[in-house]
């Protein structure tokens, strides 16, 4: 939109940008400041905004210490990484295999399936978790990484498939027709014709799957209570709910947990935006 730039509109715009940045990043910055404030400066009647002697001791403690809490914290990071990679490896091929026929092939029930898929997005995970919990206990899958990842995948499969469908829908029909005339199988056509032109959306979907897995809390809280599978989100929450008094450590624990998703958001913002905007259209 073109507009005349007056001094007033410029000041207004700058003020809006400042407010915007403070709102988006302020809480993160404050939490970071808390995480580098020594415990001694935190107690008492403090009304300053920045510590006199900032320290990275809390980060060192969580990342390098060999005491129980730090070990469990690092284990949580490892568990989340493993879960995220496994979700990607299984979830994305499944989503592609599911989205391709729903978008490009005609078969009985495809419209119904689309609507069921969309409707499933609205169903809370909790609606499935009580029977799953009982089932997992009886199958001895509680605290099992693969079992956990399968539930993660079902929780974001509808969204991922929808994202891919709305992209596949925009590709011209002629793309595949030539390949079919040459006698290619449907699977071959998908692999050789459709996937190569869809890599941005598949990449966006993969990023979203990574973020979603990394951010899971409610599912692992119930299905992965043991240290061997407990992800970082649950470990970080225990710093708060199990009434630790070390507030600096609590904040450092949160900040470290948000570094991987924050880096992804900054580096791959274009893909993510395409993913967010793409999934919300009919295609």
């Amino acid at each position: 939109m073109k507009r005349k730039r007056t001094a007033g509109s410029r000041i207004g715009y700058t003020a809006a940008v400042v407010l915007f940045i403070v709102f988006c990043l302020g809480p993160i910055l404050w939490s970071f400041i808390m995480s580098i404030t020594p415990q001694s400066e935190m107690m008492g009647e403090v009304t300053t905004f920045f510590p006199e002697n900032p320290t990275f001791g809390n980060y060192k403690k969580l990342l390098l210490d060999t005491e129980q809490q730090a070990l469990l914290y690092r284990r949580g990071i490892g568990n989340s990484m493993k879960a995220a990679l496994l979700s990607l490896l299984i979830g994305i091929p499944m989503a592609v295999l599911c989205a391709y026929p729903m978008s490009r092939l005609k078969f009985k029930g495809s419209v119904v399936m689309r609507n069921v898929l969309l409707f499933t997005m609205a169903i809370p995970v909790f609606a499935t978790i009580i029977p799953l919990y009982k089932l997992y206990i009886s199958l001895r899958l509680l605290n099992n990484l693969a079992g956990l990842v399968l539930v993660y995948i079902t929780s974001f499969l509808p969204m991922t498939v929808w994202l891919l469908i709305s992209y596949f829908d925009t590709l011209p029909q002629e793309l595949e027709e030539a390949a079919y005339v040459d006698g290619g199988s449907k699977f071959y056509v998908m692999l050789k014709i459709i996937l190569p032109v869809s890599y941005p959306i598949i990449f966006a979907a993969s990023l979203i799957v990574f973020l979603q897995t990394w951010n899971q809390f409610q599912i692992p809280l119930i299905l992965a209570p043991g240290h061997e599978t407990k992800p970082i989100a649950v470990v970080a929450s225990e710093f708060v709910t199990k009434s630790t008094v070390d507030y600096g450590l609590m904040n450092a624990g949160g900040i470290i947990a948000l570094i991987p998703p924050a880096i992804i958001a900054i580096v791959f913002r274009k893909f993510l935006i395409q993913g967010i905007a793409g999934g919300s259209t009919k295609g």
């Binding site: 915007f20 940045i21 988006c24 990043l25 809480p27 993160i28 404050w30 939490s31 973020l211 990394w214 951010n215 809390f217 970082i232 989100a233 649950v234 970080a236 929450s237 710093f239 708060v240 609590m250 904040n251 624990g253 949160g254 947990a257 948000l258 998703p261 924050a262 992804i264 958001a265 900054i266 913002r269 993510l272 935006i273 967010i276």
Partner: peptide, 18 residues
Amino acid sequence: TAAAIIPWALPPIVNGVM
């Protein structure tokens, strides 16, 4: 855009902590 998208990408549990 980067600043705008960050809150969306973070773990909700950590958002609450912050």
